[in-house]
Design a binder for these strands. Structure first.
Lengths: 167, 167
DNA sequence: GCTTGACATGTAAGAAATGACATGTAACTT
DNA sequence: AAGTTACATGTCATTTCTTACATGTCAAGC
């Protein structure tokens, strides 16, 4: 159950409300997983039931701040170190890249250009995020993952450029 | 609906039975999408209903060979060129990589090593597939996508090596 | 002749995910 | 004072996916 552990992970980085976690999911995990609030709220309730997370404070507008428990931290550790990863991937963009080779070049070209523009835009946003993180007093634990993403982007963009030249 | 179009795409490459398509899904699209036969058989029936695919021959053991229709090819083209890609990605491995930064180095190390080994094994298999494809009389349309994957692998492996050195 | 494994197709229950519906509060702007 | 936007939490119907159940054929090896 990746949603459960992703949530446990985000809560380990920092406690937060369901609303906030929904946003953090999109900002930091968007290249790995997606979950909307309609999944997150019920899952927080289940984490509570399992003893892996708990409400630590209630604030304005009925907001409830959740934090991971010791049991939750241990469950996350167990999951990361002991369970076999589920390797199955879902990436529509990659499906499209694969199927694109079936189109004739005239149809393929604009799609490839759009994809390259998208990759480049993502790269710009990642660079901005990296700069933001580097300006913080303490370094973010997940900073190296941003570096990985920053390296993968140009490789994809370059491949697309070559495809556009060859096509 | 990615399953539908992935299937349409595989049928465009080559007609095939549901059984065969299940295998091809795993072999050629495993880094992009996964579907098991229990999803594929019903979807083929739906593609038939929609006029996008049809049974072109029946063989031994009740096997039925499906092929894409002209309408199906057009639907695939329309989907690739006109519809907005769904950018949401599901990749448990990437989630794990992200969350790994939360563990202490002693726990992190063996997981990183396992991941690197996995990446390298995938790379070996991709190289073998590439060699296989290059030995064929006509070049495979999707050959360039293999090249992209072959470039991404080493970047990930190197990042992991660095993480192991730094940790 | 028998067994095993690959080929081959289906269904069905349950879990997970999506997208829409529904409601209300607090802060800021005009 | 009214309007807008961001904050905040939930539910529910539908769709999609997974896992298990269920059945049968054909080829190869023993």
């Amino acid at each position: 159950m990746s949603l459960r552990h992703a949530l446990l992970g985000l809560l380990t980085v920092n406690p937060g409300t369901g609303y906030e976690l929904t946003q953090r999911f999109d900002r930091s995990l968007s290249n790995a997983w997606h979950a909307s609030h309609s999944q997150i709220y019920p899952e927080l309730a289940r984490l509570d039931e399992a003893g892996f997370a708990e409400v630590v404070s209630e604030g304005a507008r009925g907001s409830r701040t959740w934090a991971v428990t010791d049991a939750g931290r241990e469950e996350l550790r167990r999951w990361l170190t002991e369970s076999e990863p589920n390797r199955s991937v879902r990436n529509e963009g990659a499906v499209r890249l694969f199927l694109l080779t079936l189109l004739d070049p005239a149809d393929r070209r604009p799609v490839l250009e759009r994809e390259r523009a998208h990759i480049e835009e993502e790269h710009r946003q990642l660079r901005a995020l990296a700069a933001e993180l580097d300006a913080l007093p303490e370094p973010a634990a997940f900073r190296p993952v941003i570096d990985l993403a920053l390296r993968l982007g140009p490789v994809m963009a370059e491949w697309m450029t070559e495809q556009l030249e060859d096509g």
